[in-house]
């Protein structure tokens, strides 16, 4: 009996050593390959920054700091400035947040607090499918369905109403009520970022212990009071992170905005007037651009890179801190 066990043990050891030799080199190879793949992620990010810095450098050298403050964009005289595109980008993204944030928080509260159990899954799926619709389809919807309705039922009445008024008159007056412009872009962007913010906010609200919610209901709080005094303070930091994430998307969104913003290089105080964003200008002009114009577009890309990456880094830090805590 002992002899038998020994012989089995010996046999096993031998087969194990026999198999180990080739599999160890495979093991190293596997490890190296996975390490390399992970490093590639770093390289791609560095490559994106490097390539647009390299491409945009001549424009920065030519115009210096004036590139940021100039509103010129003239292919004939080769004068380029980023101001209109930067303002268009920031303004449309800001409007998107202004409209999108209340809507997404509303959806998150509905899904976690008000929705009857059987409807929760399909409703959540519907909202998530909004995130899957390609950006170009939003562009077509915005231009062919939304813009005409918006022009007729919002822009024209509002323009007529506010014409000649001191501040509101300049802010809301549409010289050509065509339906496209910064405000339309803001609305379309709002629709596009809603599913992202809503799904993160919903996850955060779901993570709050049910006991907290139930004890608040137990002392007679209404849903509004539970949301306002229990849920929002608990999830506030990560919801702000989710909003920044939405902002990052809104800043860099290209195709939908290109359809509905009107693509004009004009500095206008009215949010109903057409303008352009960094991304829409690159999409519109890059293929026909040459020489300094190409460099100027790359330089615009650099500015977009810096803005969105700062926003996204803040967003990730905010959402991360809460998850680990």
């Amino acid at each position: 009996m002992p002899a038998l066990t020994e012989s089995i043990a010996v046999g096993r050891t031998r087969s194990a050593t026999a198999r180990k030799a080739p599999s160890r080199s495979l093991d190293t190879l596997f490890r190296t390959f996975s390490y390399g793949a992970a490093l590639l992620v770093l390289l791609v990010l560095a490559g994106i920054l490097g390539s647009i810095l390299y491409g945009g450098w001549p424009a920065f050298r030519e115009f210096g700091f004036g590139f940021l403050t100039s509103s010129a964009w003239n292919v004939g005289t080769e004068q380029y400035g980023a101001l209109v595109a930067v303002i268009g980008t920031v303004a449309s993204a800001f409007l998107a947040l202004l409209i999108g944030v209340p809507v997404s928080l509303g959806i998150a509260v509905y899904l976690t607090q008000l929705c009857p159990g059987w409807a929760r899954k399909p409703v959540a799926m519907t909202i998530e499918l909004l995130a899957a619709v390609p950006s170009i389809i939003y562009g077509m919807w915005g231009l062919f369905v939304f813009a005409p309705l918006f022009a007729r039922y919002v822009q024209m009445p509002v323009s007529n109403l506010v014409e000649g008024m001191p501040i509101i008159g300049t802010l809301f007056y549409a010289r050509v009520p065509s339906g496209v412009g910064v405000f339309t872009a803001g609305i379309i962007l709002a629709i596009m970022i809603v599913p992202f913010i809503a799904s993160i906010a919903r996850d955060m609200l779901d993570q709050i212990p049910t006991v907290l919610r139930e004890s608040a209901y137990g002392i007679g709080c209404t849903t509004w009071e539970v949301v306002r005094h229990v849920l929002v303070p608990q999830a506030a930091v990560s919801i702000i992170g989710a909003i920044m994430l939405g902002l990052g998307r809104a800043l860099g969104e290209t195709m939908a905005v290109t359809f509905v913003i009107g693509n004009a290089n004009r500095l206008s105080a009215s949010i109903f007037d057409p303008s352009s964003t960094i991304a829409s200008r690159i999409a519109n002009e890059f293929n026909e651009a040459d020489g300094l114009q190409l460099n100027a577009l790359m330089a615009l890309g650099c500015i977009l890179f810096v803005i969105t990456f700062v926003v996204l880094i803040i967003a990730r830090l905010l959402t991360r801190r809460v998850q680990s805590a």
Partner: peptide
């Protein structure tokens, strides 16, 4: 950085 790349503007990837 992967999380950031996840929401990076796709047009910048085109430029790259």
């Amino acid at each position: 950085l992967n999380d950031i790349l996840l929401s990076a503007p796709s047009i910048l990837i085109g430029l790259f």
